[in-house]
């Protein structure tokens, strides 16, 4: 983190004045326009707790230290005002950790700007997720980095669910880690994964490969199934109407619910 502090000082001369009190004036000095400064001022005031105002200045300093410009800093804070309340030392540590798991300059800024909630997560949690992906799902370190970059929200997910999703795609769909990363698998919910897959399978458009990895039909790429929005998925991959998929989703939800009840009953017996 010493390194990163140095790094940020180089990037932005303001880092030295971290202790300055929050004021419209100081905000304008940092490069915010009048309107932006007003917006920051109001959002900080809205946060309860006496330290917020003092904390805010150092938060802003850290964020500028990352090389973000005023308007992305503003957007980030509007998305996740919780960031104001994090101590600057914490923030530095968390950012340092993201670098450690492989997010290089550029990626790091994009992740933080796009998903600032990642800054609210303790270092340990991010480390656990990375470890989990490596050890339980056998992703390579590079793949783990890619996952954190493309699907940062994974740090907030229940790892049991993540494992289930991984196993579903690995065993049930017969697809390897590389494809999962490309498909940005961890961006969509488990239900959506199962639903799209089952829909294709029942339409005869997807088959689980046998032990030798063979199928009688050519499966669509995982990327085309999961990366596209629903409309594209329907018209280009499933070749079905929205009406059909809508009914199917409801039917499948009912099937799952009944399966769960069934297993519940068996366990209770």
């Amino acid at each position: 983190s010493v390194q990163s502090a140095q790094h940020s000082r180089e990037l932005h001369p303001l880092s030295g004045k971290a202790a300055t009190e929050l004021s419209l004036h100081s905000l304008r000095d940092m490069g915010f326009t009048d309107i932006q400064a007003q917006q920051i001022w109001e959002s900080v005031s809205a946060i309860r707790g006496s330290s917020a105002a003092k904390q805010a200045m150092s938060t802003l300093t850290v964020l500028f230290g990352l090389g973000l410009n005023p308007s992305s800093v503003l957007k980030l804070l509007q998305k996740c005002p919780e960031v104001y309340t994090i101590k600057d030392s914490q923030l530095q540590k968390r950012i340092g950790n993201l670098r450690k798991v492989g997010l290089v300059e550029g990626s790091l800024q994009r992740v933080v700007a796009h998903y600032p909630q990642i800054l609210t997560v303790p270092v340990k949690t991010v480390k656990n997720v990375a470890l989990f992906l490596r050890e339980k799902c056998l992703f390579t370190s590079q793949q783990v980095t890619d996952i954190l970059r493309d699907c940062p929200a994974i740090v907030h997910e229940d790892l049991a669910q993540v494992e289930y999703k991984f196993q579903y795609v690995y065993f049930r769909m017969g697809v390897k880690q590389t494809e999962m990363v490309k498909a940005r698998l961890f961006r969509i919910t488990l239900d959506e994964v199962r639903c799209r897959h089952c829909f294709l399978e029942r339409r005869g458009l997807y088959q689980t490969p046998d032990k030798k990895g063979q199928t009688a039909i050519i499966n669509p790429k995982l990327e085309s199934i999961f990366k596209a929005d629903q409309d594209t998925f329907l018209t280009e991959v499933a070749k079905a109407s929205i009406e059909e998929y809508d009914v199917f989703q409801r039917l499948l939800a009912k099937e799952w619910q009944e399966e769960e009840q069934l297993y519940g009953n068996i366990e209770a017996e």
Partner: peptide, 23 residues
């Protein structure tokens, strides 16, 4: 059915198939 009906029903078959396999 896959062998027979994909020929007989053509483009309609996937849609019939998923219906047959659902409630």
């Amino acid at each position: 059915f896959d062998a027979k009906y994909s020929v007989q029903l053509g483009r309609l078959w996937p849609s019939v198939r998923v219906a047959l396999l659902s409630e």
